[in-house]
Design a protein around this nucleic acid. Sequence first.
DNA 1: TTAAATTATATTGTGTGCAATACATTATAA
DNA 2: TTATAATGTATTGCACACAATATAATTTAA
Lengths: 159, 159
Amino acid sequence: MQNTNKNTNTTPELLLENQLCFTIYACSREFTKLYQPHLDKIGLTYSQYLVMLVLWEKKQCTVKELGEALFLDSGTLTPLLKRLQAAGWILRERSLQDERKVLISLTEKGAALQSEAACIPAKMAEGTMLSSDEFVDLLGQFKGLLGRIHEANISASKK
Amino acid sequence: MQNTNKNTNTTPELLLENQLCFTIYACSREFTKLYQPHLDKIGLTYSQYLVMLVLWEKKQCTVKELGEALFLDSGTLTPLLKRLQAAGWILRERSLQDERKVLISLTEKGAALQSEAACIPAKMAEGTMLSSDEFVDLLGQFKGLLGRIHEANISASKK
DNA sequence: TTAAATTATATTGTGTGCAATACATTATAA
DNA sequence: TTATAATGTATTGCACACAATATAATTTAA
C-alpha cells in the first residue's frame, strides 16, 4: 500500500493508516456496534451473545472450555456468566466429580432464546453487504491470521 | 466454508466457527496481547499507543479529531488523555478561538518517545511472520471491510 | 501417604469502550 | 438581538478485558 501521507517526520511503519492491528481493532468495534441494536432486542450484550452461541452448540461446558473457545479468561467470564445467570438464561453449578470446575448450561428460557437470535446473522450480512463468496474468503483469511497471532502469543508466553 | 461441526441442532449461521465478527474480535484481542510486552517497556497501553501514533503524525489536534481518526468517542478519550497528561507525554489546553475545543499536543518527552517506539512495528512483523505482500493484502482487505461496516453504522444511526 | 506441583476458579484493581446525559459555546434564524 | 439549534467536551454508569493474586482441589512423586 502506497503511503500517501504528507508528513515526512514519521516513519511509514508508525503511521496510523499502516497499522494492521488498528484496522482490525476498529473493525471489531464497528462490527459490535452493528450488532448492538439487534442484540438489544433480545437483551444480550455482544460478549454475552458469543457465550450463548457456544452454549447453543454444546449445551453444557466448563468455564475453562468457554474461555478456550472464546479466547477469554475467567476474570472476564465469571462476572459475565453471573449476569447471564441473573437474567435467567443459564445455570452455574459446581461439578460433583471435580469441585474446582463450574459447569455452565442453558435454562429452558436460554435454549428458547436461540430462535429469537436466528435472524441476526442475516441482518449482519445485509448490513455489511458481503456476498457469500466474499464472506467465506474473508473468514478464511482472518482465521488464518488469528491462528498465527495466537501461536505467536503462546510461544511468547513460554519465554 | 464447510461446516464440519457434528451438532445438527444449530443452524450453521449461529455456529461460533462461522462468525466473521468473532474472528475479528478475537484477532484484535490477540494482537493487543502481542503488543503488550513491548508497550510495557515504554509505559503505554495499546490505546494510548494509538493516540501517540496520531500525535507523532499531526503534532496537534482536538479531541474530536482524535476520535474521528481512532473511531473513539470523548467518553473513552477524555480519561485516557488525562492519564497521558499525568504521565507527562501530552498537554491538554482549551482553544482560545473556540473554548469548546480542547487541543492536544505533545510534550518534549512525548515527542522523544517516538524513537523508543520505532522498533515495535518490526517486532510485530516478526511475531506474526507475515510477508510484506501478505501484510499489504490483509491491510487492504481489512480497510475495505472497516469502510463498509462504518458506512453501515452511519446509515443505521440515521434511521 | 504426605509434600509439592498442577489445575481451576474467584477476587481485585486498572484501563478501556460506549450510551446517555449534562453543560457550555458558537452559529443561525426569526 | 434574542431564542433556537448545533457543536464540542465532560461526566456518569455499566460492561468488558486482563494481570496479579488468592484459594481450593487434584495429581504426582518421593
